[in-house]
Structures are given as structure tokens and as C-alpha cells.
């Protein structure tokens, strides 16, 4: 049997590249003026243009949480965010959490509770946990489980992650 299938090419859209646009972003405390194409996601900007590879790409579709960063203190998926849209915002990535050699309490807790194995989802988990603490809605262990469910850990380190977040919640004040 035989039939024809034609993949759908992009028809009526003009072939060409988008112009670069100027944005100002404060990334981990440092203000940066950048020229970015509109189609560049915040995630790709960090990883491919600024060499901030701590933020991970695990699916590129908002389905895993590996790309979680904090924008103005709130956790978001950087893969579903265009960099140009965050003009003027403050971005915190995993690289910006520690103060010099002093790790953030969430980072400390992750090491202590072995809250990771391969480490690939870890920066996203940690940023997400910091966001969770800032939000202040997690009161119980089950709350933590639910509110950390936007970060998939394929190694299955969830018990350690929950223990680490519980510990960090005790020592952190919101917005620390």
C-alpha cells in the first residue's frame, strides 16, 4: 500500500530573520544591556548567549521545570518566556543564589539531604524552592510535595527534595 504524506511547510510567512531588539536585564544583580532577537527564549539567552548554563533545558515546553528561574522574585519557566518580554526585570538564576562561597540555605539543604542524583533538574528545583519560600503558601509536607510538583526529577530524589525544602523553610525568611 502506498500513499503520500506531505509535511506542512510554513506557507504564507515570509522567509527572513527577525531584527534584534535592545533589552536591559538585571541578571544576578548585574545590569546587562543586550541585543536580542524576539524569538530567543530567556532560557536560551542565559545558556547560549550569556554562558549561564546553570539553568537547564529539560523539555523546552514548560513540562519539567528544569529551566526555573526567579523573575522579580517569582519562579517561572524560562523556556516559555521571551527574553525581550522581560525588559527591565530582575532575573535570578542558580548562579546568583550563593553569596560568594556561602551557599544559599536551600543549596545547603539539598546537599545535606542528597536531594538529587544526576543534578540536571537541581538548579530548577532549587530556584523553585526559593520561589516557594518567597510565596509563603506551603504549610505542610503535602503542600511542599504539591508545590514542588512542577519540577520533575527523573532520578526520583523527591524524598530528599521534600526534606531539604522543609529544612530550608525553617531557616529562611521569605524574600531572603
Amino acid at each position: 500500500m502506498s500513499s503520500k504524506v506531505l509535511t506542512e511547510p510554513i506557507g504564507d510567512v515570509a522567509v527572513g530573520l527577525p531584527p534584534l531588539q535592545r533589552v536591559t536585564l538585571t541578571i544576578n544583580g548585574a545590569e546587562k544591556q543586550l541585543e536580542v532577537a524576539p524569538w530567543t527564549s530567556l532560557l536560551d539567552l542565559l545558556r547560549e548567549y550569556l554562558d549561564l548554563t546553570g539553568t537547564k533545558k529539560g523539555c523546552d515546553h514548560g513540562q519539567c521545570g528544569a529551566c526555573t528561574v526567579l523573575v522579580d522574585g517569582k519562579r517561572i519557566n524560562s523556556c516559555l518566556t521571551l527574553a525581550v518580554m522581560k525588559d527591565g526585570c530582575e532575573i535570578t538564576t542558580v548562579e546568583g543564589l550563593s553569596k560568594g562561597d556561602q551557599l544559599h540555605p536551600v543549596q545547603e539543604a539539598f546537599i545535606e539531604h542528597d536531594a538529587f542524583q544526576c543534578g540536571y533538574c537541581t538548579p530548577g528545583q532549587i530556584c523553585s524552592a526559593v520561589g516557594l519560600i518567597n510565596e509563603g503558601h506551603a504549610k505542610t509536607t503535602d503542600d511542599i510535595r504539591e508545590l514542588m510538583s512542577g519540577n520533575i526529577c527523573r532520578c526520583g530524589a523527591y524524598p530528599g527534595i521534600v526534606a531539604a525544602v522543609e529544612q530550608a523553610l525553617k531557616v529562611c525568611q521569605p524574600n531572603q
Binding site: T55, L97, S98, L103, Q107, F110, I111, D114, F116, G119
Partner: peptide
Amino acid sequence: SRVDGRAKVTG
């Protein structure tokens, strides 16, 4: 604790 822990939690 994992000896590569620090590298993994800092990115």
C-alpha cells in the same frame, strides 16, 4: 555528602 554536590547545586 556527594563530593560533586556543590558543583550541582551552584550550576
